[in-house]
């Protein structure tokens, strides 16, 4: 086992939510990010499906890593991921046909979400099952959080509602562009702007604190 002794379970879980957020920091998984976030419910279902696939495949990859020959590991990861995606696809089709119709081709396309393959290669295949699952859960929740942030902004502005509950009454003028693909790009860009701005501010603040400490010492 690699370096699991130095890992902290809580840290491995939390890092995906904010510090290493797959969308806002790593900028991975942009395809579902932009395509299905035109409403909060779509974003949540997409996040849920990704959570299922990521936890499932991280668990399998971490527990099977002894038997996975490294020459064909990528193909095996993809087989594992694709299996979970197909399971998710059929289950959604059976349980939530309405949402499945709206998400359309983007559920099968979870296979191509580079965040998932990235977690297998970078984490699950090098660590124990417990940490792999924690890491997967954190990353997937971070991804869901980002999808939800984007989806709710776009639904509120583009449709005047959240989870299909109207917020502003009948006379609300919807911002049509927010529901359309350009709205996804604009909103994501603005959120990234805020994220980076906050990061820079924080860094500057930490520097000042460090300097102040050095002076007092």
């Amino acid at each position: 086992m690699e370096t699991d002794k130095n890992l902290d379970a809580y840290q491995e879980f939390v890092k995906g939510l904010w510090r290493d957020n797959p969308v806002f920091v790593q900028v991975l998984g942009m395809c579902p990010m932009l395509a299905v976030t035109n409403s909060a419910i779509n974003a949540l279902v997409m996040g849920g499906a990704t959570l299922f696939v990521l936890i499932g495949s991280s668990f399998l990859v971490a527990s099977l890593k002894k038997w996975i020959p490294k020459q064909v590991r990528i193909s095996l990861y993809i087989i594992i991921i694709a299996t979970f995606v197909t399971v998710a696809d059929y289950s959604l089709l059976a349980l939530m046909p309405g949402v499945h119709k709206e998400l359309g081709a983007f559920i099968p396309l979870i296979v191509a979400n580079c965040m998932i393959l990235g977690r297998q290669e970078a984490f699950a295949s090098r660590h124990g099952v417990r940490f792999a699952v924690l890491d997967a859960a954190g990353m997937a929740l971070g991804f869901t959080l980002a999808l939800f942030a984007l989806g709710s902004v776009r639904e509120i502005l583009g449709n005047g509602s959240l989870f299909n509950i109207p917020l502003f009454g009948d006379t609300f003028e919807p911002w049509v562009i927010m529901i359309l693909p350009p709205g996804g790009f604009i909103t994501l860009g603005l959120i990234l702007l805020v994220f980076n701005w906050a990061a820079v501010r924080k860094q500057r603040f930490m520097q000042q604190v460090a300097e102040a400490e050095r002076e007092t010492l």
């Binding site: 003028e173 911002w175 049509v176 562009i177 927010m178 359309l180 350009p182």
Partner: peptide, 10 residues
């Protein structure tokens, strides 16, 4: 273009 995309009717 932003306005036309956002408020096509108005």
């Amino acid at each position: 273009a932003f306005l036309l995309g956002t408020f096509p009717i108005a």
